[in-house]
């Protein structure tokens, strides 16, 4: 009885570990997009390992956490917002910020 319960628990832990870790390293990298508000500006989206990343605008780097969900990439902001970016194709992330426009991030490296 106990053993079966423990096995179940173990499997669950494994699952959650996989869940949190299995992000896919192929999305990591530096992406750039042009600020639709302000054509001159470039927004840099840096996706690093372990789900960490940053959104840099006009020199200000905002830390974010990212995770991959099938064809979407979810960007989590500390304030409590989560933005879903679409993975159109490899090296291209399409992020729509409501009221701010669409950001097309192209992978730079």
């Amino acid at each position: 009885m106990l053993r079966s319960a423990l096995i179940i628990l173990f499997m669950l832990l494994l699952g959650s570990a996989a869940y949190s870790c299995g992000q896919g390293p192929d999305l990591q990298g530096r992406y750039e997009a042009v600020n639709p508000q302000h054509q001159g500006n470039v927004v840099v989206l840096a996706l690093r390992s372990a789900g960490k990343g940053s959104w840099t605008i006009e020199g200000e780097e905002v830390p974010i956490r990212w995770e991959r969900r099938n064809q979407e990439i979810w960007l989590h902001h500390k304030g409590g917002a989560v933005i879903a970016g679409k993975l159109v194709e490899a090296g291209r992330i399409d992020v729509e910020l409501p009221g701010l426009g669409r950001f097309l991030f192209l992978r730079k490296q």
């Binding site: 669950l12 699952g15 959650s16 869940y19 949190s20 956490r65 989590h76 500390k78 304030g79 409590g80």
Partner: peptide, 13 residues
Amino acid sequence: VYASMYKINYASE
């Protein structure tokens, strides 16, 4: 258990 994982991780959301 599964449901709680996300919520614990992204408490602000």
